[in-house]
């Protein structure tokens, strides 16, 4: 397993480089333009100059190499400088700079990370915590009223998109009941009890909307996988050996059923960092998802390239983690 992991990690580097090039190529080919959202009062000749000042008159390959240099060399150096408070070279390196804000993309990401982790991450944790018990109980008591209800709600959760559930919650809880704010305050800092209560209040709606959606999907996979395993021979054997039902279900069946669930969770974790575009938009959370969508709408290539690439790194990494967990859950799985 160790050798496998090392081999996979080494192979990751060319993979990611290739992915970064493909992403750059797509972003560059896409027909949206950084001047597209400017008022029409800015005449075409000025737009040409704006594009030139952004470096868009350079060939694509040169711009890609420039990004590589900025991202793989300048940004890490800069980070080392900040961490250890030292200066390497003359300290004036060009960092990856967003076209719309003219500020380093990495700083923007760092600024956005807290609210994304709080809201999207929390919703994921809540989703998992709801989904696994629901999936297990639903499968164990297949076709009971609990199972039917669980099925109904998970289908509802998956087929009704978040733009709708989010809006519905705002209309009910913000407009009519006035319980929760409809606009998330990203500058809010938790310092005491009352500010903590406020933080919980403003998180509750986006977290619930997303958790509902995530749990719906996850609980279905959990249930299906549990059902498969409950019918396996080893379950009968274990019961025949006189093991307690609790032990059979929670240790043997659950463990063997987790493979698809681990896959789905591993696929979902990078998405936490990618933010939740629609939910962030509805509740004005302005996390990474909102940053990405603004970047895409404004054809902000350095921003979108960097965000998407970080996202790609996480995807590759978490898929590797999932593969390792498979081996732990089921020792028969060997990659060597």
């Amino acid at each position: 397993m160790f050798h496998y992991t090392i081999r996979r990690l080494i192979f990751t580097i060319p993979t990611l480089l290739f992915i970064s090039f493909v992403i750059f190529f797509i972003l560059d080919t896409a027909p949206n333009d950084p001047t597209g959202n400017l008022p029409l009062t800015i005449p075409p000749e000025v737009r040409v100059k704006i594009r030139a000042s952004l470096g868009l008159d350079q060939p694509m390959f040169i711009r890609y190499l420039l990004w590589c240099q900025q991202f793989f060399i300048n940004e890490p150096l800069n980070m080392i400088e900040q961490w250890f408070d030292i200066t390497i070279g003359d300290g004036t390196r060009l960092r990856v700079t967003s076209w719309s804000t003219r500020s380093p993309v990495v700083d923007l990401v760092v600024e956005r990370l807290p609210q994304t982790l709080w809201v999207v991450g929390m919703s994921y944790v809540v989703g998992i915590l709801i989904a696994i018990p629901i999936g297990v109980i639903s499968a164990y008591k297949q076709y009971s009223w609990f199972d039917q209800l669980g099925t109904f709600f998970s289908m509802l959760g998956f087929s009704v998109p978040t733009f709708f559930t989010g809006l519905l919650m705002i209309v009910i809880f913000s407009v009519h009941l006035r319980w929760f704010p409809s606009i998330y305050d990203t500058t809010h800092k938790v310092t005491d009890w009352s500010s903590f209560v406020f933080q919980v209040k403003q998180m509750i709606m986006p977290v619930m909307v997303l958790a509902f959606f995530n749990a719906a999907q996850l609980s279905r996979f959990m249930r299906a996988s549990m059902l498969d395993n409950l019918q396996q021979d080893y379950v009968r054997t274990a019961r025949a050996k006189g093991l307690k039902e609790r032990v059979v279900v929670l240790t043997h069946v659950l463990r063997n059923s987790l493979i698809p669930v681990v896959t789905v969770i591993a696929l979902g974790v990078p998405q936490v960092f990618g933010g939740a575009i629609i939910t962030e938009q509805i509740f004005k959370v302005n996390g990474l998802g909102q940053l990405l969508i603004i970047g895409i709408q404004g054809a902000d290539i350095p921003l979108v390239q960097t965000l998407t690439f970080i996202f790609a790194v996480l995807i590759v990494l978490f898929n590797l983690i999932a593969d390792i967990i498979y081996g732990l859950l089921d020792p028969r799985i060997r990659y060597d």
Binding site: P31, N32, D33, P34, G36, N37, P44
Partner: peptide, 9 residues
């Protein structure tokens, strides 16, 4: 999409 329509690519 507005960013394409008004973008002038």
């Amino acid at each position: 999409d507005a960013a394409v329509f008004f973008g002038g690519d």
